[in-house]
């Protein structure tokens, strides 16, 4: 029983670490075109790094049929847009100051983050 209890507590610790504490690597907007794929309930890559001080474009390709994935919101930038299915959609971002900007679907189940450095 002790073993089960310890395993349970470790499992809870793992959930906290995996979903909240761990910060995965950020994809950078480089020479190659960066397209964020919206598929299977996620944005991929979900964390992207952008340069500060100049307007940039980010592109989304939605392959997910779920209606939830249709809306894209970047609340801090007051951007809300619709992502068409199986089509590339370009979102133009203004010149950003350094910081973190979250983007997500209407229900926040699809979540991503833009880090501006």
């Amino acid at each position: 029983m002790l073993f089960i209890n310890i395993a349970g507590v470790v499992l809870i610790g793992l959930i906290v670490w995996w979903f909240w504490l761990y910060k995965p690597k950020e994809a950078e907007l480089g020479e190659d075109d960066l397209v964020i794929l919206v598929e299977n309930g996620t944005y991929h890559p979900s964390r992207i790094k952008l340069p500060s001080g100049k307007p940039v474009e980010i592109k989304f390709m939605r392959k997910d049929q779920s209606p939830c994935s249709e809306a894209l919101l970047i609340p801090d930038l007051q951007i809300s847009d619709t992502l068409p299915l199986n089509k590339l959609k370009t979102i133009q971002l203004p010149a950003l100051s350094t910081g973190e900007y979250a983007f997500h679907c209407q229900m926040q189940m699809y979540r991503g983050q833009i880090t501006v450095e």
């Binding site: 995996w18 979903f19 299977n40 979900s46």
Partner: peptide
């Protein structure tokens, strides 16, 4: 969906 979002360190419905 669950697996992909797990890999992405996120969780959903």
């Amino acid at each position: 969906g669950a697996w992909k979002s797990f890999l992405n360190h996120s969780a959903n419905m």
